[in-house]
Design a protein around this nucleic acid. Structure first.
Lengths: 244, 244
DNA sequence: GAGTGGTCTAGACCACTAG
DNA sequence: TAGTGGTCTAGACCACTCT
């Protein structure tokens, strides 16, 4: 295996992390598999040990790998479903990491004036139009989460014309705004389902669900997107691996 | 300022991270303050740039700092209250990072046989006794969270005799078991308050709250502790900063 | 003692920001 | 162009695990 510096514009350690993720998802490295030693990997991949460690660190955070000093690096037994608490990734990316089948229904979309909440999150005025989309995501044909997104049209011109289902919203935003998303702030709360949400998720009204609200930023701390996510936790776990 | 290799048994980068956290909490570095360049810091602290970067990475994860390529490293505007989604830290540690005043009521404690849930989480049998403690934590005299902990007495002999309020449960576990806690798995869900919980938190029965369940591991993936945490999110945010 | 991860160093070059 | 963070290298020594 060979990796080339900046071959696809991505840093080496990210290419390696991706390569490792694929090995795990394709079953080449099964649960409990012991990876070659860092030194050995570095030699095989023709990079330095530090770069290998950086790639491994990424998968540790996602809960895919586990390291034990003196013993080695192992593929973790996977219980975690949404690594939503750890990395700024989209639902689709999360599902890809886990190798799950998923599906999307677009409930509605429109160009609209921002509510006060959205004005605040996106740092825009009442007359700066935003693109709104509401979707239900399904895992194995079962509705699992409701996502509402608001995107500033000023900052992401053309976002309302793009095919977000094909490319993914994050990618569309990055293309329209011609920047890279750099980080996000996600907050966790609980709420009771209202009537419409209950219908969309096939649950009872009033059932407690996880509720995330999120801002996503581009360069210079400019908010490009904000969203509200309602997540049922009775079937799929939202978990994270925490290092000491 | 000088740091010494392994002076208090802690790695250099952790000592530096602590020193930085103190600077922020004591107000020496205020919101928006621009830190010296990494190179400069490394020179001042008499360590290599890599070590400085590792310390900064820790505070980035906690949301205390923010880095912008080409511009510098800055003290973040703080909105985040519980960095519970990112690092394996106790409630007390989280409050210290933020510099908040807090308070604890012990509701009950006892030595007991583990329930099935606890047997499963701690990987013990029905006749392996566990130490149980239930506490309410208050921030500024307002009840904010309920924590129930179960600790294996076999693996942490003397835990039932120790003063956990003074030292903190994590420290007591580490001393009794004579090991270091290495990582944890925390899962996020939502639930409706039952009558007792509602009373303890001064909220209405049925109110939706965040519910975390957690396992904490020592060396060799041996679970030492498990816990259930009920968290009101109406007043304090549980948030994390997510890097892309 | 051999193998492995954890930490640390010193130096290099690149990409981005700002004057 | 100077300043700053992002990435990468090569090598060193330590702490821990297992045999």
């Amino acid at each position: 295996m060979k990796f080339v510096k900046q071959s696809d514009g991505k840093p080496l350690y990210q290419q390696i992390a991706k390569w490792m993720t694929e090995h795990i998802n394709l079953g080449k490295w099964k649960e409990g598999y012991k990876l070659p030693a860092e030194e050995e990997l570095a030699y095989q991949l023709n990079v330095s040990r530090g770069t290998v460690r950086k790639a491994i660190a990424k998968l540790l955070k996602q809960g895919l790998l586990e390291q034990i000093q003196g013993k080695g690096t192992f593929v973790r037994k996977q219980k975690i479903s949404y690594p939503f608490a750890q990395e700024l990734i989209s639902f689709a990316e999360a599902m890809e990491i886990k190798g799950y089948y998923f599906d999307t229904d677009v409930v509605s979309y429109k160009v609209m004036q921002p509510s006060e909440w959205v004005q605040n999150k996106l740092e825009v005025g009442l007359y700066d139009l935003v693109y709104y989309v509401k979707r239900v995501r399904k895992i194995d044909y079962e509705p699992a989460i409701i996502i509402e997104n608001w995107v500033s049209i000023d900052r992401c011109p053309g976002v309302d014309q793009a095919n977000i289902n094909e490319k993914g919203l994050f990618k569309v935003i990055e293309e329209c705004a011609d920047v890279e998303l750099t980080y996000g702030v996600r907050s966790f709360a609980a709420k009771a389902l209202n009537e419409e949400e209950a219908r969309l998720l096939n649950l009872k009204e009033g059932a407690p669900v996880l509720y995330l609200d999120q801002q996503t930023f581009g360069p210079n701390d400019l908010p490009l997107e904000c969203s509200r996510i309602v997540l049922r936790t009775d079937q799929y776990e939202v978990a994270s691996v925490l290092k000491r």
